[in-house]
């Protein structure tokens, strides 16, 4: 790892710290507390619970104790699942979310890029129009519509695939991955179609054709790098968001991912869980932006110092 990479990582620590602090205090400003929704809880029990979780302490003390634990890599207890730590919950949910998420991102890149290339090769042709229509649909249909539609067609109607659940079959993954990938495919298709369309007008593309290169080389060797730049800028942050789990898709397909715990945690004022997920998301954002920067330098020699 180069010195500049390490420097970039070090620079990210303050940002993550600010994110953590803001989230910590904003959660406390929001009305309600972790044990408000518990039924038939006596004031005594409630006081005991709050004491057990340090919630009776001044906010500053709670904050400092949280930071100290965090330094040891401990995200603290979950208030909602008394027998599980936040580390355990994320540890259980992340493999599910990250597996589905990375499949969705890879699908988004490969399928989106193929569609974008097919469209850009003949701008305003029939394929281009089809791809543009699909891209518009893909970005404008929200997942709470597309996911149930997929279930309706492929699980209920055609009975090809299970409607949800998580039994370790590859078939369980298919519909959620499609639902997760759809917006990425659409956006990557549109970004790459526009970028490649512009790149193909460049004088150096005319030079490549003047050399008698086959169109395959003109596109995949001469035009692909600049086409990938905007796609990567999108996919970096998108990967961070998708790998930490989609709230909607995990709920609809009943998947035990991070996203589902996150919503439940927010509803239940499960401060520790929400903070843990926000921190995970922030760390991934930093990481993926760094990866994107490194890839940029690999793709564009002018960015290599």
């Amino acid at each position: 790892m180069s010195a500049s990479t390490l420097r970039r990582l070090a620079q990210a620590v303050p940002s993550l710290f600010v994110l953590l602090t803001l989230t910590f205090f904003m959660l406390r400003v929001a009305p309600g507390g972790p044990f408000d929704t518990e039924e038939g809880i006596t004031p005594q029990t409630r006081a005991q619970l709050e004491a057990a979780y340090d919630l009776d302490q001044p906010l500053s003390t709670q904050y400092l104790r949280y930071l100290l634990r965090l330094l040891r890599g401990d995200l603290g207890p979950s208030y909602q699942y008394p027998d599980r730590s936040v580390n355990e919950i994320i540890g259980a949910g992340l493999p599910v979310s990250a597996t589905l998420g990375s499949l969705a991102i890879v699908t988004g890149l490969l399928l989106g890029l193929s569609l974008g290339v097919a469209a850009a090769r003949r701008r305003d042709g029939a394929v281009d129009r089809l791809v543009q229509g699909f891209a518009l649909l893909g970005v404008s249909i929200p997942q709470f519509v597309s996911a149930p539609l997929l279930i309706l067609v492929f699980a209920v109607g055609l009975r090809w695939l299970p409607a949800g659940g998580w039994n370790g079959h590859a078939a369980d993954w298919l519909l959620p991955v499609i639902a997760l990938a759809l917006p990425h495919v659409a956006i990557v298709a549109r970004l790459s179609r526009n970028a490649l369309g512009d790149v193909l007008q460049a004088p150096y593309i005319r030079t490549a054709r003047a050399k008698g290169l086959p169109e395959r080389l003109v596109i995949w060797r001469h035009a692909m790098r600049p086409t990938l730049l905007p796609v990567l800028s999108y996919l970096g942050p998108a990967a961070a968001a998708t790998l930490t789990g989609s709230v909607v898709v995990e709920q609809i397909f009943g998947l035990p991912g991070v996203g589902r715990y996150f919503v439940q945690g927010a509803f239940n004022r499960d401060y520790g869980l929400v903070l843990g997920v926000v921190l995970l998301y922030g760390t991934l954002i930093v990481l993926f932006n760094l990866i994107v920067d490194l890839l940029y330098a690999r793709l564009d020699p002018r960015l290599r110092a």
Binding site: R206, H222, D300
Partner: peptide, 12 residues
């Protein structure tokens, strides 16, 4: 071509 600045591929 006329313009050697833009006629070579800057990425290769």
């Amino acid at each position: 071509f006329q313009d050697p600045m833009s006629s070579l591929n800057p990425y290769l």
